[in-house]
């Protein structure tokens, strides 16, 4: 057995990280195409606040983070669809509200900051059995929802009004997507940290979109790129002793660069430059 798997915390990180690495871009594909990439970042900040509350109260920070993030997801979705404010304003409102709450909790709770560090930047060594089981549950839920609601998700991503006129329950589908995103973001936060979660949701999708294939292929390739990024990043971080979160995100970025480069080469070949002059 390779050295890396002789440590039980690395095995746990590979299982939880692999599942999250698959789930995040699956949901991310729908978010990116709805131009909602930043929803992940907002929900991650909410999750950080949730974790801070949990640490402060001394109970289940991950569970508290999942619940707060899921509730925030529903509130965001409601704000977004109401005419009360624009989408990006709603994101800003929720993001800064939660961040200021987190800062207040940090200032009144002794030692919360030290524990919270792991949630901000990710902490592979603290991934416990609970995280693994939660990730397995989440993975199953995301796969099941994408499978069952595939048509509804695609329809409402393509155009919400057209979807409504076709009889798709768009609002309910959006709530399901938002809540799943909230949960995914929280669990991904354990591995890549709240500050970088958005990258795991967005980068693999951007890479996959470069391929210019149909929806299903884009979805599957994005998931695969996410998983490969997590596995590669974890491995590199273990042997080089660098931060796992940074390694994972930079791996995803490298894959995006490679795919974009290959695509640029291909288009140049298929469409030779016109002679100048």
């Amino acid at each position: 057995m390779p050295e890396i798997f002789q440590y039980s915390f690395m095995v746990r990180a590979f299982i939880a990280g692999g599942i999250v690495g698959l789930a995040a871009p699956l949901l991310g594909t729908f978010l990116v195409l709805r131009r909602l990439s930043l929803i992940a970042d907002t929900l991650a900040h909410v999750a950080i606040t949730g974790a801070a509350i949990g640490i402060f109260l001394g109970h289940f920070p991950v569970l508290v983070a999942i619940i707060t993030s899921a509730i925030a997801a529903v509130i965001l979705e409601r704000l977004r669809t109401s005419r009360f404010m624009a989408s990006d304003s709603a994101l800003a409102l929720v993001l800064y509200t939660s961040l200021s709450l987190a800062l207040i909790i940090l200032s009144i709770g002794n030692g919360v900051g030290i524990d919270l560090f792991g949630y901000l930047f990710g902490s592979v060594v603290t991934v416990g059995k609970g995280d693994v089981w939660a990730s397995v549950g989440l993975g199953v839920a995301v796969l099941a929802i994408v499978w069952l609601l595939y048509s509804e998700l695609v329809q409402s991503t393509f155009d919400p009004d057209m979807a409504r006129v076709s009889g798709v329950p768009v609002n309910r589908v959006n709530i399901v997507l938002a809540v799943l995103t909230g949960i995914t973001v929280t669990l991904a936060m354990r591995i890549v940290g709240g500050l970088l979660v958005g990258a795991l949701i967005v980068f693999p999708v951007l890479a996959s979109l470069q391929l210019g294939r149909g929806f299903r292929t884009t979805l599957l390739v994005a998931g695969a790129i996410g998983m490969v990024s997590v596995f590669t990043g974890l491995t590199v971080s273990f042997y080089q002793d660098i931060a796992a979160s940074g390694a994972i995100v930079l791996t995803a970025l490298s894959l995006l660069a490679i795919v974009s480069g290959l695509k640029a080469l291909k288009t140049r070949k298929s469409a030779p430059l016109k002679s100048q002059g």
């Binding site: 990116v32 131009r35 393509f158 979109l209």
Partner: peptide
Amino acid sequence: ASAFRVRFPATVADIVKL
């Protein structure tokens, strides 16, 4: 369609099938 503002990954046939 709002999808026309992004590079929506679907073919003509996929959209008609929607």
